[in-house]
Design a binder for these strands. Structure first.
Lengths: 207, 207
DNA sequence: TTTTGGTTTAACCAAGCGGTCAAAGATAAT
DNA sequence: ATTATCTTTGACCGCTTGGTTAAACCAAAA
């Protein structure tokens, strides 16, 4: 039991890495167990040795992916920060995650559509802390920093503006930017600032 | 050849209707030809009699769906209308289409991700008229109606804010609104006005 | 009535799917 | 060296998949 190196669990980790890669790209229904095995460089039967079924393996990956999509803003909100800061942190955290996991939004959208109740249950149990954000927005309204606004409308707008560039990247780059990668990089570079300014002005924010 | 009734082509139309329903809900990979046949109330072999393969049948549905997503704004822009009107029409046309076809955005997102180059080519050939909108936005900036802004950032924001409520409906309703359908209806009822006001303010619009 | 042509079907097929199993390999304890 | 336990594999299984085929069906033309 001295063995703490990776040669023992490397198979399991290789499987998880492969499953992550392929499930996120092709979704549950588009993925073949054989493809995961090939990608991981192991026998297909070994997949079922470590993870009994395709669904079990998938759910592990899915839970992991979902958790990334829940912005952890508890500390940010609890501190004495401005509305501008919160919007910036919110948008920023999404962009950070998306740049590291470009396939994440399409993956989650696809699987939410396939099994909405399951996902909603999962998010409820995992403590999706939207209420804190709602309260924060309402308090900012009451203190006169921003105009009266339905917090959900605002949150949905922020998420939509943050995620859609990644969801629709092929269209934006291919159709709106004539396939120019440099333009696309510029677009992403400017995206965060645009969303923040656009949002603050859209809410009549006063410093 | 007197026969112009539907009994002759009803099979084909029944197939198309079934294919539309099921492909849009489950996507290419999630759909079984048998399921389409059952839904249409016909034999599976008849599918291949009218449409040779799953892919051919699918592409018909997909082209039809894609065309719905391209906003036909040529007439709107060509006329002498205000920026407020254009934003209103833009958001409105998306909402109208989405309410009639709630599964459309997830469907298109899923299939774009599966075959991005194909879709981009299709959209280019179908004359996606984003340039007119770009020019219009730029002209509004030059005339001082709105602050300087990258048209693509704005268009992507508008589409993102318009589509995301439909893409993320299960989460919004299930997690942000505790499953309350009435709240969700209110949310959708107020959505258009919110986006328009939010956008106009966000761009320092002056009438 | 027979023929003709398009329409619809049951039965079938090869390939691919997720999943299983018995046995071979590897590793550490006895 | 031998046993016991965990890991890895090739071969295999039952089932589903998209697709085919030959024959039945059916209305209109001859």
């Amino acid at each position: 039991m001295v063995n703490e190196n990776d040669s023992k669990d490397s198979a399991e980790k290789k499987i998880l890495k492969a499953a992550r890669e392929i499930f996120l790209d092709k979704g549950y229904e588009g993925t073949r167990m054989q493809e995961i095995a090939d990608y991981a460089g192991i026998n297909k039967a070994l997949l079922h040795y470590y993870f009994r079924s395709k669904e079990k393996l998938f759910m592990g990956i899915f839970v992991e992916a979902l958790s990334k999509l829940v912005p952890r803003m508890k500390e940010a909100i609890s501190g004495p920060v401005s509305f501008r800061d919160i919007v910036g942190i919110f948008v920023d955290s999404y962009h950070e995650i998306m740049i590291e996991n470009p396939n994440l939004p399409v993956f989650v959208v696809r699987e939410i559509h396939r099994m909405p109740e399951v996902v909603v249950d999962m998010m409820k149990k995992s403590g999706f802390d939207i209420n804190m954000l709602k309260l924060f927005i309402n308090s900012q309204v009451e203190q006169g920093y921003i105009r009266p606004v339905d917090p959900v409308q605002l949150i949905v707008s922020l998420i939509g503006m943050s995620l859609f560039p990644f969801i629709g990247k092929p269209i934006i780059q291919g159709v709106m930017m004539d396939g120019d990668e440099e333009k696309m990089r510029d677009f992403f570079k400017n995206r965060k600032e645009f969303i923040v300014e656009f949002t603050l002005k859209g809410l009549d924010y006063v410093e």
